Simulated assay, not measured.
Amino acid sequence: MARTPLWKSIAIALTADIAEARYATGDRLPTEAQLAAKFGVNRHTVRRALSEMADQGLVHARRGAGVFVAARPTDYPIGRRVRFHRNVAAGGQLPSKKLLSLDARAADTREAEALAIAPGDPVLVYDGLSLADNAPIALFSSSFPAARFPGLRDALSETRSVTEALARCGVADYTRQQTRITAKQANATQALHLRVAEGSPILRTIAVNVDADGVPVEYGRTWFAGDRVTLTVDGT
């Protein structure tokens, strides 16, 4: 009877560790050297095992960072109504947001143009991290016309949800006026928050949301981790 190759035995053992939650989604596996010592093999054998697991979509390597347990990519539809919690929950994952900052300042030229206000007018800027099953999938920065929504800061601080916060401020519904999608490379700050290596591929969206009368209510920029999100554009 043919013996199971060492690399395959290692792949089976590591796959079992993942299945039994010894390594969770997003966790970094031990280094090749550590795995080689653990299994009593050379690093080439470990590398073959990890390559097999990567081919199966179980792990992925990040340049300069190591090998990580792969997350199931989150399908993220972009259409007339883009709602983070709804999009993530529809894919069977648990959505959550982490507040990074919530500050009022003067609008820059791009914000003023997008929100149809004058440069220098006050805007409330909500910076945060979007997570699916506690794994970061996107970093975002949303700007709102502060004069129109005096209670928005408290609502966002309490709910973390743009949809719920705007509803509390009198905007029962809003739709996406436009979305621009551009491929980028993660800078040091983005890489830190998204838990990717600096220079890793990310997708940036720039969007404007408007109320029922077509008046802009939100100017948003979002940076999605390229290996964790599949953006789906809804033609309707």
Rank of each mutant, 00 (worst) to 15 (best):
V69W: 15
I137V: 13
A155N: 06
S51G: 09
A186C: 04
T175E: 06
Q177P: 06
A155S: 11
R48Y: 09
L58N: 01
V82G: 01
D17R: 10
T163F: 10
H193S: 02
L129I: 07
T31L: 15
R160D: 01
I12K: 05
R43Y: 11
R176F: 01
M1L: 00
A2T: 07
P73T: 06
R86T: 14
S141W: 01
V162A: 12
A165K: 10
T15F: 00
I137E: 02
F68H: 13
G40V: 10
N187Y: 14
L35Y: 13
R43I: 08
L29E: 04
R81C: 04
H193D: 00
R228G: 00
S143R: 00
G66R: 12
F224E: 08
G57T: 01
N134D: 15
T163R: 11
G66M: 04
F140N: 07
E158S: 10
Q34C: 05
T159W: 04
V59P: 12
A138N: 08
A54D: 07
C169W: 05
D173W: 12
L203R: 09
A21N: 14
E198H: 13
T163N: 15
L14D: 04
V82W: 08
A186F: 01
H44W: 10
A106I: 15
A138Y: 00
L166A: 07
L231T: 07
V88G: 11
A132S: 13
S9R: 15
E52P: 09
R28C: 11
S157T: 14
S161F: 03
L29T: 05
R180K: 08
E111I: 03
I18L: 09
C169N: 13
E52Y: 13
I18A: 05
G26C: 09
T205K: 08
S161V: 00
R48S: 14
A167F: 11
M53N: 01
R180D: 04
L203F: 12
S9I: 02
T159L: 03
R168T: 15
A89K: 14
E158A: 13
G91S: 10
A116C: 10
R83L: 07
Q178P: 07
G220L: 02
V208L: 02
A114M: 06
G214C: 11
G92E: 12
D133L: 01
N87E: 06
V215L: 04
T230P: 04
D227F: 03
R62M: 06
A188V: 12
K98A: 11
I117D: 03
G220I: 05
L203K: 07
K8R: 15
I202G: 02
I78P: 00
I206H: 12
D127R: 11
A21V: 13
T222N: 11
L203D: 02
Y126K: 05
A116D: 14
E158V: 07
A188S: 11
I206K: 11
R180A: 09
L203E: 12
R153A: 03
G220F: 00
V215R: 10
R72S: 08
K184W: 08
L99P: 00
Y219D: 02
R83I: 03
G26T: 05
Y23S: 04
D133M: 00
E164K: 14
D55Y: 06
R105T: 06
K97N: 13
R72Q: 13
Q56F: 12
